[in-house]
């Protein structure tokens, strides 16, 4: 029972932290609006500048931070559980890379300048393509090694095509725009982006969230899980397409944000007794915390330089990951 209690406490703490960071994200910004005023403006119908800033700039940014963070944390936890590999992360299936490629092509061809939603839509199309290729390569019999290898191949190819687009870029501005977009950011997103990504993310979350018990059974290997009544084809379908739906939508609106999906499940795993099913909710909340916190930080550290979110998560995430590796080594020796 104490284990259950500890789990509930952890989830409550993470939920509270997520709420605080969400409010912080709503109230931190160059406009310097007082907390009370900003909340009043958010809920009042007045058509003044403060309401405009709150509703059209800060609210979508905070919402996307929450949604993308939860997506990265949840999909990271599911993929690590499904592939039984602590190094798995949402980018592994090639989804982030092909979504980026789709977005880059939209910028490169000038489509994104002609039509604002061309970029996220092209990115989503890229994610769909990745998933179809990975699924076709791996087959339906659920071999996790084949999925990893197919994902690596798709990622490399998408990376190469992205480099080609940069290489052949007609002018330096397009190249710069591509580079900046790829760094990952939540700046200047609108409610349109929220409505575009939202439905895909919710579908993805439901698919991934239903996998808890299957992932627990998978702790004992895929054959033992199958003997316990787990339909491995269904698990593979839900894990792959669920990740594609939410991570594809996330990448489409924010660019690739690294390390969150890898590090967050790692940190939280020991705190939930290593049970894959319990890691899902905790990791979704943890991911939301990290992305919201990072997005607040980029506004505080260098408000005028437009520090990119993806840069910050990688700068903080990578050394932290090294520390985790170091700690694991100390425990082993």
């Amino acid at each position: 029972m104490t284990v259950n209690l500890r789990y509930r406490l952890l989830v409550a703490l993470l939920a509270a932290a997520t709420l605080v960071l969400f409010l912080l994200s709503l109230t931190v910004g160059p406009a310097g609006i007082a907390f009370g005023d900003s909340m009043v403006a958010l809920f009042s119908g007045k058509a003044d500048a403060v309401t405009l800033i709150m509703r059209d700039i800060r609210l979508p940014r905070a919402l996307l931070g929450l949604m993308i963070g939860a997506t990265l944390g949840l999909s990271g936890a599911v993929l690590q559980g499904y592939l039984r590999n602590p190094l798995a992360e949402p980018g592994l299936l090639g989804i982030s890379a092909t979504a980026s490629l789709g977005a880059v092509l939209a910028i490169y061809t000038g489509l994104s300048a002609a039509f604002a939603l061309a970029l996220p839509l092209a990115a989503l199309a890229g994610a769909v393509l990745a998933v179809v290729v990975v699924q076709a390569m791996a087959g339906t019999r659920g071999n996790s090694l084949l999925i990893i290898l197919a994902g690596i191949a798709v990622t490399s190819f998408a990376g190469a095509m992205t480099s080609l687009a940069l290489n052949l870029s007609p002018n330096p501005f397009a190249a710069l725009e591509i580079m900046f977009w790829m760094l990952g950011s939540l700046t200047d997103r609108s409610m349109t982006h929220v409505w575009l990504a939202g439905p895909f993310m919710v579908v993805g979350w439901v698919m991934l969230g239903s996998l808890g018990r299957s992932l627990d059974a998978l702790t004992l290997g895929s054959e033992t899980a199958a003997s316990m009544g787990i339909d491995m084809r269904r698990v593979q379908f839900l894990a792959v397409f669920g990740t594609a739906a939410c991570v594809g939508a996330g990448t489409a609106v924010s660019g690739a944000i690294g390390f969150v999906g890898l590090v967050v499940p790692h940190i939280l795993r020991p705190l939930v007794g290593s049970r894959p099913s319990r890691l899902l909710l905790a990791s979704a909340l943890g991911g939301a915390c990290v992305v919201l916190a990072a997005d607040v930080l980029v506004r505080l550290i260098a408000p005028e330089r437009d520090l990119k979110l993806g840069v910050l998560t990688a700068i903080v995430g990578a050394p932290f990951f090294l520390w985790l590796v170091f700690r694991a080594r100390r425990r082993l020796t």
Partner: peptide, 14 residues
């Protein structure tokens, strides 16, 4: 049917 596999696989520290 219950099945005891030959490989003693336990992926996580449960």
């Amino acid at each position: 049917i219950a099945y005891l596999a030959q490989e003693r696989e336990i992926a996580w520290d449960v």
